[in-house]
Amino acid sequence: MNEQRIEFSGEILALQASGSLFWPRMEMLIVSDLHLGKSERIARRGGSLLPPYETTETLTRLSDDIARLNPAHVLCLGDSFDDTRAALDLEDAHRATISSLQAGRRWLWVEGNHDPGPVDLGGEHHAEYRSDGLVFRHIAAKDTRAGEISGHFHPKATIRATSRPCFLCDATRLILPAFGCYTGGLRWTTPALRGLFDAHATAYLTGRKIIAVPVPKAA
């Protein structure tokens, strides 16, 4: 699997083409916005009956990354579940998958806006998490010092009429793409998102290979 190493706030980070982030020095894998249980939540609210395979698919992709990188820590950067009920309603098979992924490593759940409460799964819970000068929180804070890593926005970049989930990054912040299977995206030039970054922000498109592009002005 392809990756791109960047220097961020004094640390070397490896952006994975799969949409996860690896911090080699700490052996930490970071994923954001898994939105497990999304199709069930939509059905529960009387919406469409979407193919109910996205939790399996998302966990399979997460398992692949964990098998490949063998991290000592896994940090889920919020909105891991589509809502609290989705976490409680998780099927036994998926529960077992998560347990086996947790075995032998430290697992951290950071709260998101979709899943604020603690869930009855293993691992630690944090409103936000700090380590070695980096701060991990679900939603980027308005004022932050350099070294903030967040998720929440599901950024998407468009070049040559092709749209891909992407990492967005400048000297201060890094925002991760959504790792979950059924997740939409927010255009990288949307003011609410673009405004978080300085003029020289870079987008790293996920897909088969990481592709780096400068982020255009807000639209």
């Binding site: 193919p51 395979y53 996205e54 399996t56 698919e57 299977c181 059924y182 939409g184 995206g185 927010l186």
Partner: peptide
């Protein structure tokens, strides 16, 4: 955010 693309649904359904 826009909803995710129906292409993802198609791919998922084809796979599973």
């Amino acid at each position: 955010q826009t909803s995710f693309s129906s292409d993802i649904l198609y791919d998922t359904l084809t796979k599973y």
